[in-house]
Simulated scan of single mutants.
Amino acid sequence: MKYLLTDNYAPIKVLLAEDDEDDQFFFSDALAELPFPTELTIASNGKDAVEKLTQAESKPDIIFLDLNMPKMNGKDCLKFIRMDKTFCSIPCIILSTSSAHTEIEETYHAGANLYILKPNEGSNLLKMVNKALKLDWKENFTPKKELYFLSERTLQRA
């Protein structure tokens, strides 16, 4: 049985935890260009993301977490999500400018489902977000290590 977010007729509910306003805009712009409907909720840090999760009437279908944010970083937010039975089954994607092996390994072992190295080009962000939203999350919830890291370079090889 497949679990594709794009198979639903309802908009895909996306939570983005990102402190940089420019990155929020680029992400929102990428979602607007997708050929399927989405609803975006933006949190400006991990603490705000946790508050939005716990206070929302419905939970998001997918969460994108910036790694480096004030108040609560992406790793701590991810740990909260994975420890809470209400949210632990939601796919969590890490967004970062860091390609440090330690960051990638730590987030993989903490339960993130995909690590996206923030691209330099908006068109590549669109492709990366599109790819994340079209993954079969039943099959890819526990990611294969070789498919966990997505960058502009790996995107071109795919």
Rank of each mutant, 00 (worst) to 15 (best):
D48I: 08
D29F: 10
L78P: 04
L95G: 02
L53E: 03
K127N: 07
Y3C: 04
K52L: 08
S28K: 11
T154F: 00
Q55E: 14
L78H: 12
M83F: 13
R82M: 05
I94M: 06
K134R: 13
P119G: 08
D23M: 08
N120P: 00
E33M: 11
P70M: 04
E51P: 08
H101M: 04
I104S: 02
L125M: 11
N124C: 03
E57H: 10
E152Q: 06
Y115P: 13
E121W: 02
A56M: 05
E39C: 14
N73K: 14
L150P: 02
Y108R: 12
K85I: 15
E106L: 15
P11W: 10
A17Q: 07
Q55C: 14
V129P: 00
L15C: 06
M1E: 02
S99M: 07
F27S: 07
K71M: 09
L67W: 09
K13D: 08
I93P: 02
F141R: 04
K127I: 02
A112C: 03
L4V: 10
H101G: 06
I93D: 00
V50C: 10
H101N: 10
E103C: 14
M72L: 15
D76C: 09
D29R: 15
Q156N: 09
K134W: 08
L150M: 08
Y3I: 13
Q24T: 05
A10N: 15
T107S: 11
D22M: 15
D61V: 06
Y115V: 04
K127M: 07
A100I: 06
F27K: 06
D136N: 11
A49L: 09
K131R: 13
T86L: 08
C92K: 13
D61I: 07
P35H: 10
I62H: 03
E21F: 13
A10H: 12
F149P: 15
L135S: 04
P143H: 01
L95H: 01
I93L: 04
D48F: 13
Q156S: 12
L78N: 06
L15K: 08
S151L: 00
S96L: 01
L78I: 11
P37Y: 10
L126N: 08
N140R: 09
P91F: 04
M69N: 04
P143Q: 01
K131Y: 07
L67E: 01
A10T: 15
A132E: 00
C88T: 13
K79P: 00
Y148V: 05
T97R: 05
L133T: 02
K2D: 15
T107Y: 04
E39W: 03
L155K: 03
L16F: 10
E33Y: 11
L53W: 05
K75M: 05
L135E: 01
S123M: 09
D22W: 07
D84R: 12
E18R: 07
N73Q: 09
N68D: 13
I93R: 02
E51Q: 15
P91C: 06
K59G: 14
Y3P: 03
D136H: 05
L65V: 05
I63P: 09
K13A: 12
E103R: 12
V14Y: 01
K131G: 03
E106S: 15
H101P: 14
L31I: 06
E51D: 14
K145C: 10
S28M: 11
T154I: 00
L65I: 03
N130P: 02
T38Y: 03
K71L: 11
I42E: 03
S28I: 05
F64L: 03
T54D: 09
Q156T: 05
I62M: 04
D7G: 05
L34D: 14
K59D: 13
S96K: 02
